[in-house]
Amino acid sequence: MTTRAHACILIVVIRFVLFVIASACVAAVIAAVRPASAAAGWCWPSCSTYGLLGAGTSTYNGCWYSIGEVCSGWSYWGTNGVVKTCYPGCDYYGNTRGTILYGFENRDRIRGRFTLLSNRFYIQPYEVGMGGYLRAQVAWYSGPASQINVAAG
């Protein structure tokens, strides 16, 4: 074998290693930002896509806030799940600059937790001291629009 052949083999091996590492990284990212659930009773904007929730977003179905909120219809919801991506970017801690409130609402009040974080969040009605006929909701609170997928079931 010539020195040139050795170099070629070395390049192929290095490319293979880089490909394996890159594939692992892509798989990890995809796993981390997969939408909340594909088997939910209500999803926004759909059960497999993400939408931007900003100050002007609405589902036009009578949510607590007429704009800056997306909410389900009325039902006996068991869990509200939110996946928030790093859109438009995250700091070292995974924080975005857009704050959202996620939880539930009834005719008297809206309740939930705030988060700036990107990742996944789940909450059940009893955690916010609610039960019965509710809407699952995610509301914009401050900052730029957040890219989210919401699924309640």
Binding site: Y93, R113, F114, T115, L117, S118, F121, Y126
Partner: peptide, 24 residues
Amino acid sequence: GSVQCAHGPFPTAGWPVLDLSIYE
């Protein structure tokens, strides 16, 4: 009954509190 996950490390000097309070 509720979960918050994060991509980054917690806690750190830049992020020492994870507030799980319920607001209304």
